[in-house]
Design a protein around this nucleic acid. Sequence first.
DNA 1: CTGTATCCCCCTGGATACTG
DNA 2: CAGTATCCAGGGGGATACAG
Lengths: 135, 135
Amino acid sequence: METTDAALDDHDHGDAYCATCPCRDTLDLVGSKWTVLVIGRLQEHPHRFGELRRAVPGITQKMLTQTLRRLERDGLVHRHVLVEHRPPSVEYSLTELGETISAPLEAIRIWSEDHLPHVRAARADFDERADTTSS
Amino acid sequence: METTDAALDDHDHGDAYCATCPCRDTLDLVGSKWTVLVIGRLQEHPHRFGELRRAVPGITQKMLTQTLRRLERDGLVHRHVLVEHRPPSVEYSLTELGETISAPLEAIRIWSEDHLPHVRAARADFDERADTTSS
DNA sequence: CTGTATCCCCCTGGATACTG
DNA sequence: CAGTATCCAGGGGGATACAG
């Protein structure tokens, strides 16, 4: 995880294209596919753990926990434990920082939905082309 | 690769949150960390292979090829072979579809750069908090 | 120059079982 | 309910060598 945490304080705006640039780590945020969906849900409203689990079908507790931990560590998500509850209850919500990225991520999500047919068509075309070429 | 290509034509807009939804595949586009950087470069102007390789420091030929192939298959990138050249020369550029996603991806890239200090601070804080808690 | 082919390590991420 | 712990298969991805 802590791949490039040392000796990296130089950073010029407009250039994420440096092998040692730590913003590569930040880019990896999007890398774990679940983050986009989790943040998308939290953007709607705060969620409790199980609630979030149900809201993101297919995710396992492990991945949900892992994703939330990472997001919490990165300051995008706030974890609020309701101690008075029995059984325990934990609520997750976006921090201010988290809010700032939810819009861009939503754009990606929307794009995925909107252009899905286009992408699938392109794939079918590509694969077919590959087949006819080989024949 | 062809994880969920069959029996999936139902898709309601506004809901990427279905376990079997194929748009999860599309989300994975962002998943491979290199795509964001590669598309960012192609957004500036078409690149030849080696040129692109140099423009995205740290990427290996294998990953560059793999990334470009995937993007080509998904219809985001156009691959133009300049056959008359010796040695061969290949130029990559964004397709129309590719153009439509470059803006959202750029937003992510910008965000990564802009909020890097914030994220790093949050991490340090989180880690320190974890240490003092355990002690 | 633009790839393809191998080897191989490691990490992601799924399934399952167990705690407070 | 909200986790943690463990096992384990698969794939991402790096290094290297080779080909057209």
